[in-house]
Design a binder for these strands. Sequence first.
DNA 1: GACCTTTGTGTCAAAAATACACTTTGCGAA
DNA 2: TTCGCAAAGTGTATTTTTGACACAAAGGTC
Lengths: 247, 247
Amino acid sequence: MHDKMNHELNPRISADCVIFGFDLNKLNVLLIERETVVGLDTYKALPGDLIFEDEPLDTAANRVLNELTGLEDIFLEQVGAFGDPDRLSKPQDRAWLKAVRQDPDARVVTIGYYSLVGMNNYVPQPASFARAATWIPIEEIGELAFDHRQILDGALKKLKEKLNVQPIGFNLLPEKFTLSQLHRLYEAILGVELDKRNFRRKMLKMDILESLEERQEGVPHKPSQFYKFNEQKYHDLLKTGFDNFAF
Amino acid sequence: MHDKMNHELNPRISADCVIFGFDLNKLNVLLIERETVVGLDTYKALPGDLIFEDEPLDTAANRVLNELTGLEDIFLEQVGAFGDPDRLSKPQDRAWLKAVRQDPDARVVTIGYYSLVGMNNYVPQPASFARAATWIPIEEIGELAFDHRQILDGALKKLKEKLNVQPIGFNLLPEKFTLSQLHRLYEAILGVELDKRNFRRKMLKMDILESLEERQEGVPHKPSQFYKFNEQKYHDLLKTGFDNFAF
DNA sequence: GACCTTTGTGTCAAAAATACACTTTGCGAA
DNA sequence: TTCGCAAAGTGTATTTTTGACACAAAGGTC
């Protein structure tokens, strides 16, 4: 727009999103595959981009996420600001920035966000506007672009904390789910084993689950009871405050 | 420096610090008194300012804090980013910005930080480099400049959460303190009453306090036992993880 | 020495956490 | 058809933690 000199004077601000999904087995994160400029191999990054001049941060995060993945209007929670002056200075990051940014040398402070979505509700459309967003199991994620690994770790930490303050994670499951699935979800997020009986007892005592008549079908073992999440009771409890929630 | 046009193109970044102090009775926050431009009355703000071009965020927060209050090299924890496009648009805020900023119209995204200090360790120097930093009891704080009230509320919330995950707050007390003082501190932060006997039982069971031989002197009632905080044991516990900490 | 103020202490009942093993159900393979 | 496999589902006994509660002790002041 104006001369480049001035673009280097002031920092830019971006938003990066850590989207957690659960495939009833493992915890996944939605990542963007980017081609390295040299074209050797791809490398992975969180969906994120610069914010607009007059855009609230949360709005920007949602817009950027939508542009890159197609996900719409999700509740995003802030992880924090990441602003190390050389967070963009790894060689392949520099190369990518030079290829796509008007002012690749500008400092960028990014605001990290995270959210949970059900993996069933969202299947990345590989070749469309969702450029190359893919679910990657969290244990298989190694290094990421920029300081995205750090943002991811921060988001996971917040997610764990949150899970111990209020029961969340229903977003990550289909509408009807089994207690075992919920159990696996908790174990996946917290990264520990939880006793089956104790988990069930505690979860049911909260009284935010409704058991359905329906049961699993076609499984080669005893079919599991389906439950659904009772939003009404959940919100009532949110007001009075949860009391026994930590696992 | 350059023409004003360009200054308006990109956002600025600032750091604002919420410093909690405890006077053995009430929880206080360190605020800057500013004269309104019209000179009618003062109004209060968190210590904060723009960050430098190549400065890490945490470093900037500490520098700014030091410049405005004299406090040095404190561990600051991030509250989050606050970036509403019209967070600077209250009339008196605009007036102040016009008086002191080169580009008063630039958007500013701020990163909030918080910390705890012992009020004994730090007495604001009214007329010196610490321009007009003063401790204000937290219940007496009303509206603040910009969105600082919101930042303060966010910081307090984080502080409460943190207090329920690990025993902190020893920074807020003198080196030797009594259990009653610690008790009052917890009540001040959490904003609730805690049973004296249960509080003591639980706190002592954590085994991070050492009772000293020394007792209070000159008080018109039964003198209280002094304790000190055992950092060694605390750090050992930090690794293994606290287990019973919430009040 | 009477009074005031704050410290410091113990118990009991209720609730919650933890550890732990076997039966049930339905499918698929022999 | 039956045998085996895999996951679901269920109960109890023990220990730990919480929460409620009241009175004696110490030291200064008047």
